[in-house]
Design a protein around this nucleic acid. Structure first.
Lengths: 297, 297
DNA sequence: TAAAAATACTCCATAGGTATTTTAT
DNA sequence: ATAAAATACCTATGGAGTATTTTTA
């Protein structure tokens, strides 16, 4: 049985006439008769009473028509839905992001994307880099806004750089270094450092290690935090200093003093990651929205 | 698009592998690849991400699978239902009957039929002969238990005789004729006759007319009734006599006296009517149940 | 007799097969 | 190098066309 049989059956049932149904289907009458006969044979059921003057559904045929019409309707609907999804008119996209590191890019990217694809639901998930990479691999995420993790395996994934963020020093407003115009790395090696957790943000800690490699020592990591909120609170409480990215002001507000480092150390590289091969058109659109969002204002 | 495409798509989606899916479908891999490609082209949608190591659904493909699976299920179900209907395991049959004239046959026929086709709903409709013939013609009835109407057009319909009912005289128990062993037609020509209505039971009135044709006169039709119940009440009240069929006792009980006519006039012919060409297997089964039911005990 | 469906046949489009190439790891 | 999908090409099933016959009112 093929859809052809069903469409032919519906036409004959509705026209109650093979010749008219054939015309409506743009085929000639004999093949139509044959297809209906084949369908009846396959079902083992007579679908029509035929005589030379009239063609009418049998009881079984009436039941079949009744069962088949909604099926054909749903099928047509399915085709419409799948095309809409492929065109990005409908659907769902799962986006992972590191909240503290993408404060500027994410909202703008969302705005651009929403404008282009109002029918697509964006599922946002606040995740660590590790979770994002795992999520991308197991297809629970489509794209991830994250910081480049230099020594992390990216098999099958692509990391596309969007923006570089200079590293700044965040201190309590009354801290001695808060007034310095230029802060060098050497000036902070004896400070207590408030950092992100090693388990959730290994790339941050790698970067930290690399930052002080040229010097003979690095500051003690006095505390670990798994969120910017608690890290800010800790620095505000005077428990230590933190190294954060340019733009951190909009998270910390006036509670912390943010100073640039000089000479500027290698910056954070913010970007977007996605699977190399299995990127949906919609996800690709999100990537380009993120690209636009990261263009300097 | 044909069902083949959908079945192939489901197999590949579930196996996530063309070679295995091909084996499962009992076809070789290249035709399968081709059919999937054709489907994708027709939809204008990429359904799978392919690389040499893995095949995975795209987002659109996942949506399509989700939409298509219930459709294929319903289709399979429809095939099952239509076969059940054709086999008489399920379905509906519309039966018209003249209550007063089929008191013996109908209940027995129903019992036989119910036993053979417990899944079939029997819709019973108490109708006049005219209504039954119209119902059969417009397919709102499948079969009708009725009295033969000699001069009524039966184009396209078949009347199959089931049983003959001798004509009897029904009187009030104290009526002079109630004691007679044999009642001749001549003895009742001066009686007031209680009859069925001309409009609903024309064949009864035709038969009545024919009955007295040989005599020079016929009894006055004093009253008309459209149901046996009211006819019985009227005769019981002593308003006249009635001519009814043998077996009427079980309707009238002891309220009326039923006497045979002698010599016996042409009897009522009870039978079953149905369309000549468009008789469902189930309806045919009902006809044969009625045949069995009308066999003498 | 006429109107419609069924049958007989012919043709070719295409589903499916085999052999081979391409591709990505 | 390997494993799987895609491509190339061939075969033949069967869908569709034309001409004709059958059916029944």
């Amino acid at each position: 049985m093929e859809l052809r049989h069903l469409h032919y059956f519906v036409a004959v049932a509705e026209e109650e006439n093979f010749t008219r149904a054939a015309a409506r289907l743009h085929v000639s009458q004999p093949p139509l008769s044959r297809q209906i006969r084949d369908l009846e044979e396959e079902l083992g059921v007579k679908l029509f009473h035929r005589d030379s003057k009239s063609v009418r559904l049998t009881d079984a045929g009436r039941v079949f028509l009744h069962e088949i019409l909604p099926v054909l309707g749903q099928l047509e609907n399915a085709v419409g839905v799948v095309r809409a999804v492929a065109k990005g008119e409908r659907g769902e996209i799962h986006v992972g992001f590191a909240p503290s590191l993408t404060v500027e890019i994410l909202p703008r990217a969302l705005r651009y994307f929403e404008k282009a694809h109002p029918g697509v639901t964006v599922q946002l998930r606040d995740l660590s880099t590790q979770e994002m990479l795992a999520g991308l691999r197991e297809h629970s995420l489509d794209v991830a806004l994250m910081i480049r993790a230099p020594k992390v395996a990216m098999h099958g994934l692509i990391f596309e750089e969007l923006r570089r963020h200079a590293i700044c020093l965040a201190t309590h407003p009354t801290h001695p270094l808060a007034r310095a115009t230029k802060v060098g790395l050497r000036q902070i090696v004896n400070e207590r450092l408030i950092a992100y957790t090693l388990s959730d943000y290994p790339e941050y800690r790698q970067w930290l290690k690399g930052l002080f490699r040229r010097l003979d020592r690095m500051p003690t990591v006095a505390e670990e935090h798994d969120s910017s909120t608690s890290l800010i609170a800790s620095v505000e409480a005077g428990r230590g200093i933190a190294l954060v990215q340019q733009g951190f002001e909009c998270l910390a507000g006036p509670r912390l003093k943010i100073r640039p480092l000089a000479p500027p150390p290698p910056p954070f590289v913010a970007g977007i990651a996605f699977r190399r091969n299995t990127l949906s058109a919609t996800a690709a659109e999100f990537v380009s929205a993120a690209r636009r969002a990261s263009q300097v204002n």
